[in-house]
Design a protein around this nucleic acid. Structure first.
Length: 561
DNA sequence: GCCGTTTTCGGCCCGACTGTTTTCAGTCG
């Protein structure tokens, strides 16, 4: 039996999951196969080789006895008897669909019915036509279009561990002397389509050969003397480029980009000699920038906006860092849909050396998240007062994530809102309102004197949904006028405000909170994702609400009537 | 089928709202 790549093994597990699902099997069992498949897809080592070496696969998370045995059978025979049996007993439509096991059969079959077709090939053709989207409905059409195109983007948050594993593999297995992440990952762009490394090696050919064995087998797309490009098991592109130590700085600069930044550098006086002189030695980026008579530009700023001009005047912002964060202003507890009690959350915040933690449970209308009733929130105010008397080294702030209702009113009466230290106000319903209506909804909410921070301003979920429409300029102007603030929701699939919107808010003179929206003590770690985003927006410590001490913060959020 | 700082069974979100629906699927956190 020829060696199978991890992806090929995972594909068979996903096919099994799809047919089990279509058959109405236990959904948790179906999910277990999918999780196991995902695990295999991210492993650097060859599962096939591990099986042949007699390794115990149950050591991997999500793989137990049954799935380990299934993988063993796939490796030994190339097949899975259970899968073959299921296929033999499935309809022609399902068998056709089984080569695309990530697609949900129920949704695909519904599309077939609506369009009067029975194969994926027909569906693919039809989806190209305008008009078909209407017939299927926006969501279904989007799902199918995305599902049939090759997945090629990933959250930065998910790509980080992939890149980390690759960096390690490049040095430890491929023999590179060093490997440094570059490109969009280094610039901390929230969604990435490729992972790239600058490596130092005398034998790029050997590195390339070994990389092709990553995850069992990784496809080499193209290669030349100094660089190579691969298609990773996850669908992402991997680019590697080699540079000698004395040219490391230039190599790093060029591979980090962005293209627009490099172009601006080329236009700057003194740029060309530094970048093109073959005899020049620049082991670090700092030396390259210095040679160009520019201040060092942090990677997060290298998007080709005004950073080169600012660097020439030595007027770059001193970007905010994780260490400068003094507290958390958006966190949930078991009072609504969080996983930990208020005290536990507070202890976790104290362990991060925060001075304060705002408890922002969902408000009463958000039933699914067990929104807190008025009576319960009055009670919670007292509970927090008592906790603050007892606990040392952390102050718990009384707050709530208050729903902005469809008409722009807030989800609690004013006297209750007034009993809180501040509020985070968010939209969680009626995403489909038109832009004008949605905008006036938010503006009206901001007119309430108890409105403090707008939570996840656009409601976007990265790679999943675009968010509602909002006239952001008007919202920002209104926030400035009414003394309201924004948050950068640091949840890795939100990062909302975007860097662009955060920059706009900043330019309008509105301070921004960086908030994790933690539903679990571990989620407090998302702060670093919010910091990445804030840095991309060019924000400094002085621009961030939760870089303030509690006395400063209290003053900053107090409304002038 | 997997898992375990309430460990070998029982949980693994889920329940109300909306309208892309036409009798129920998709969606919000």
């Amino acid at each position: 039996m020829a060696m199978l790549s991890n992806v090929e093994i995972a594909q068979r597990l996903r096919s099994l999951a799809q047919l089990l699902g279509a058959q109405g099997a236990n959904p948790f069992k179906v999910k277990a196969y999918r999780i196991a498949a995902d695990t295999l897809t991210t492993l650097p080592e060859s599962v096939d080789e591990r099986v042949r070496a007699g390794a115990d696969l149950t050591q991997y998370p999500g793989i137990g006895k049954a799935i380990a045995a299934a993988i063993g059978e796939i490796v030994q025979t190339g097949n899975l008897q259970q899968l073959e049996t299921l296929r033999a007993n499935s309809s022609a439509e399902l068998v056709d669909l089984n080569d695309h096991p990530h697609l949900d059969p129920k949704r695909v079959l519904r599309a077939y019915k609506k369009l009067g077709i029975s194969t994926l090939a027909e569906l693919r053709r039809k989806l190209a036509d305008a008009g078909v989207r209407e017939k299927l409905g926006f969501r279904l059409a989007q799902y199918l279009t995305q599902g049939l195109s090759e997945k090629q983007a990933m959250l930065l948050f998910d790509a980080d561990p992939v890149a980390q594993a690759l960096g390690k593999y490049l040095v430890e297995t491929c023999g590179a002397r060093r490997a440094e992440s570059t490109g969009t990952m280094r610039r901390r762009v929230e969604i990435v389509a490729e992972i790239s490394f600058l490596i130092e090696t005398d034998r790029l050919d050997e590195v390339v050969a070994k990389l092709q064995r990553y995850g069992g087998r990784t496809e080499l797309v193209k290669a030349d003397e100094n660089r190579a490009e691969f298609k990773l098991p996850t669908g992402l592109r991997l680019k590697i480029e080699s540079a000698p130590a004395r040219k490391w700085g230039v190599g790093l600069l060029v591979t980090t980009g962005a293209e627009a930044h490099l172009q601006k550098l080329n236009e700057a006086p003194g740029a060309l000699p530094a970048l093109t002189d073959p005899k020049a030695s620049y082991p670090t980026e700092a030396e390259v920038y210095r040679a160009m008579r520019l201040a060092y530009i942090e990677p997060e700023l290298r998007e080709g906006r005004d950073e080169v001009t600012l660097a020439a005047r030595d007027a770059l912002p001193d970007l905010v860092t994780l260490r400068e964060i003094r507290g958390e202003l958006h966190a949930h507890s078991t009072s609504s849909d969080g996983a930990h009690g208020i005290e536990e959350m507070a202890e976790a915040a104290r362990a991060k050396s925060y001075q304060y933690l705002g408890i922002t449970d969902h408000s009463q209308s958000l039933r699914i998240a067990r929104g807190v009733s008025e009576e319960a929130l009055w009670e919670q105010v007292k509970v927090i007062d008592r906790l603050n008397e007892r606990m040392r080294g952390i102050r718990i702030l009384k707050s709530a994530e208050v729903d902005i209702l469809a008409d722009g009113s807030l989800d609690y009466p004013d006297d209750l809102l007034a009993a809180l230290d501040y509020t985070v106000c968010s939209i969680h319903s009626r995403f489909a309102l038109g832009k004008a209506e949605q905008t006036s909804r938010v503006l009206r909410a901001m007119d309430n004197p108890h409105f403090t921070i707008l939570g996840h301003a656009t409601g976007r979920l990265l790679l999943r949904r675009p968010g509602y429409e909002l006239e952001m300029e008007r919202v920002i102007a209104h926030a400035k006028e009414r003394g309201c603030f924004f948050e950068i929701n640091a949840s890795p699939d939100r990062l909302d405000l975007s860097a662009e919107h955060a920059r706009m808010a900043h330019e309008a003179g509105v301070k921004i909170a960086i908030s994790t929206d933690a539903h679990h003590i571990n989620d407090l770690e998302f702060m670093r994702c919010g910091i990445d985003q804030a840095r991309r927006a060019g924000l400094e410590k002085a621009d961030i609400l939760n870089c303030l001490t509690w006395p400063q913060l209290r003053k900053a959020i107090r409304k002038v009537a």
